[in-house]
Every structure is written in C-alpha cells, then in structure tokens.
Design a protein around this nucleic acid. Sequence first.
RNA 1: GCCGGAGUAGCUCAGUCGGUUAGAGCAGCGGAAUCAUAAUCCGCGUGUCGCAGGUUCGAGUCCUGCCUCCGGCACCA
Length: 511
Amino acid sequence: MSYYVTTPIYYVNGEPHLGHAYSTIAADILARHHRQRGEDVFFLTGTDEHGEPVAQQAEREGVTPRELGDRLAPRFKRMAAKVEASNDFFIRTTDEGHVKRVQEVVQRVHDNGHVYEGTYEGLYCPRCADFKTESEVAEGNTCPIHGIELTKEKQDNWFFKLSAFQEDLERLYEERPDFVTPDFRRNEALSFIKQGLRDVSLSRPTLKWGVPVPWDTEQVIYVWFDALLNYYTALGYAREDEDLTGRYWPAFHILAKDILKFHAVYWPAFLMAAELELPRGMFIHGFLLMEGQKMSKSLGNVLDPDEVIEKFGADALRYYCFREVSFGQDGQISPAGFEARYDSELANEFGNLANRTLSMVSRYRASVVPEAEPDPALAPDFEGVPDRFNELLDGAELSQALEDAWKLVRRLNRYVEESRPWDLAKAGPGREAEEPALDVARLDQVLYSLAEGLRVAALLLHSYMPDTTGRLLGALGEPDRGLAAFGSRGGGQAVEKIPPLFPKLEAESGD
RNA sequence: GCCGGAGUAGCUCAGUCGGUUAGAGCAGCGGAAUCAUAAUCCGCGUGUCGCAGGUUCGAGUCCUGCCUCCGGCACCA
C-alpha cells in the first residue's frame, strides 16, 4: 500500500516563515505516521519559482529570477530539515524534469481540446499576478490586497475551458464527499463551483519567466498551472532510475485556506482535462495568527521558525502547532503560549513521566522491565486507542489524534499516583507482616504496565515528535517504531536513564 | 444581498439520535504525596448554554424571528 503526501510548494519571493513550516510539519506527521503503519510513503515539498511576482522581486534586487530562486530555494530546503521534515524529494519548478513534464501535460490538455485562444482584457495587479474582476477593484483602480495601482492590460492568450468541467466537478464532490476536508471548506469550494465557472487564462504573453507554452513559445504557462503540476511531475524525475508515478500517484494534499480555489477547483478540472487520476483528497488548514493577525512580512509579526526551534526544539514546535490550534481552524499562537505548553505539557507531563518511569525501573528492578501481565486497571484506557488514532489521521485530524495520545500520557501519570510503586518497593513496618511476595509481583506488574504504557504512547507520538520519542523508545529498549497495542510486548528489556527530554526553560536560562 | 458556520465557566473549547444534578483543559484557591525535570495527583464552578418566542412530558440540543461575530461568494464604490 502506498501513500503520497504533499505540501504546497513555497513561493520564493520571500523568506520562509512559520506558516510555511506549519504546512510542512503537518504533511510530515502524516508521512511519518503512514510509514509507521508499514506503508510505502512518498513525501514531497519544494519551491515555486516562476511567475511575475518572482520576476519583479528579482528585478528589485537586481538579480535574475533564476538567481533569486537559487538563493531562496536552499532556505526553504533548510527550513524543512530544521523542522525534521522527512521529505523524500524537494522539487523546484525550475527543475528541468518539471518543466519538461509540465509541457507534456499541458500539451495533452491542449490536444484533448480543452484549450483555446482568446483575448483577455482587464485590470491587472502585478503583485497578485492576476487580473481583477470589477468587483475586486478597490477605489482608484487599486488592488484591494496590495493597495497598489492596477494597470489596464489586454492580452492575447490561451484559455483553459474550466467551464466545461462544471458538471464533472459537481459530480466529483457528490461522489467523493471527502475529496476536500474539513467539510466547511468542501462547502465553500462546492458553492464556488455551483455558482458557475468561468474559463481561466492558461498562459501569459508578456512574461518571459516561466514554462514556455509548447505550441506557442512566445508565451509562458500561467504560474498556477505550472505550480500545481509539481505534485505530478516530481514523481517522474525524483529518482533517476525509476518513474514513481505508477507507484505513488495520486497524492493527498496539505494546503492552507488561501489557496483552496486553485486546489479544489482548478486542479481537479485540469487533471480531468489531462486524463490523469484525481488526488485522493486534500486537507485545508487555517492560519496561525499572531496577535490576532495573519503572519505577514508587511505586518512584521512573523515568527521565525529558526528562533522558535532554537529555543524550544523542533519537536516542541511540531507539538505546539497542533496542540494549541485545532488543525483546520485558524488559531492564536504566541511566545507565551509556547512556553506555557512546553513547561506544563512537554516538560512536566510527558518528559517527567518518562523520567520517573525510567528512574523507577532502574531503581527498583535493576534497569530491567519486569515480566508481568498488563494491569487490568490500566488496560481499558488503552483499548482501541491505536485504531482510533489511525482513523483520525486517515482524516488528517492531527489535533484530535494528538489529543487522544495525550490522554494516555495523563492517564499514566495518574496511574503512577494510584499504584504508588515507591510504597510497593518499601519493606517497611506493616509491610513485612503482609505477604511480601505479593508486593513483589504487584510491583512487577505496575512497573511493567507503566513502561508498556509509556512505550505505546511514545509510539503514537512518534510521528509528531520523532526526535524525543526516538530517544525515549531507545531508552525503553524498543527498537521498532510501528504502532503497538498495550500489552503487545512482554518485559525483560534493559532500560537506560537518559537526560530530560524537555529540559525546563528556566533551568536553561539560569545557566 | 446570498450561502455557510459560530455565539456554552475568567480564557480555549467538548457536548453524538432532544432525556438523569451541562463537561474537559488552562488559569485561580485548598490539600496529598515524594518515584521524578519542586515534576505529579486529588478536591473546589450560584455558567440567565447570544436574545425572544414556539414544539415537547422534557431543549444547549428541534422550529421561527432577532442581535453579534467569522468565512465564502456576489454587488456597490
């Protein structure tokens, strides 16, 4: 079974920020999760480098668009690495393999009769790289988004017959209710379709920076089609010796709400026109808001992922993003919120649970997990959790799944208090009078159950926090990374004590 | 203007087909414990469930109207 997941490709007219990291982390969690389930996974991210905004940005900086891409693509690549993204390839739309395959697909759409030549006249925003309909024009012929003056443009260019796919799209949404999730995004896309689709421009005659239209090399392909096709083209050349298309296509897409229309309407229509299989689905996430506003360069409220990772670690960032903000919704984030979650949940609840567990096994049982039956007091709380976890992640419900896993962490801390291993380990007065052998067995059972529960929880959390859970699983003597049921493994492994997984922040700054 | 969503504890939110005293986390207050990164655990809520009607034996849950907020689309400038 294969699983192919993508992030949007990031536009190189600016530096990477936390918003980019967010999409990347989400896709990475899904990729890692499906690998844990033993599936054949391909995870793609990359950069979008064509189009007018890049050309303009390059001009402002006095470099060629190619040079701008060459400078920024590595930054995005590095960001992916910094957040521990396990992508199998990093596509750049300037890659030869991409350009070639875009032309093939566009040619096929043309040959299938879905392209025609027309004239487009209207007000154009160079920053948006898009024409504005009358309704989208602000006072004084300015762009409502960028506030800059629009220019009147008339272009002979090629059109894609989007309107011809109206019924097909409606049927798609009918037949596959999960094609776009969450459902309120699906409704938005569907109502957009239902109100009637207009043909869209497929090419740009005035621009040189892009993929040439194969049958009219004076024009370049509109950057959005070029960009969307990355999901398909990458599989063709990511590996020198193998075309991966048959193995992985179609994809599951992760994207933010601002590019819903392109992915949920244009993209499937274009694939239909090219007679390619449609995506298996897509999940539309919201924005991480800083002080109530979208992070944006112009507002100056951008959180640099590097700084966050520097202070909290990549795992903590990955955790926080999906814990604090319900995946799919917009949500507030803040440095104070990071610190609160880090301290109370990662350090105190999870890190300390790991620490006390390893410590007690080490102290009371010479660092070997005892062999015992799972405690019936604990087992029901783990019953069915991995299955439900899988189901949630099948629907890309990252926050819900994380919540389920976290309940186990909390349950285990409670279990420690309920079972009081330190009392069981005491041979003090009033204990010897009872049956010591019973307590030995009981302590074995408690320590086994605790270590086993921690193992199961760590495995569930592994896709979210690969580094720290990896270290913890190593310390627990667990070589495998597949999801496991509670009680599926016996005792007998040697454990080792390790430094705190999430050191307290005060302790750090106090040094 | 049209469509959709939301309005529940100080904050963030759960509340499944209408059914027992409306829940969780955080924050706050009090306590227990000592294996552990002074971490953990337990206890503590007089909430007009946006407002007003209605249906029902019974409504946070269904219906109608209204208010506020958010999103999408359309329109105007």
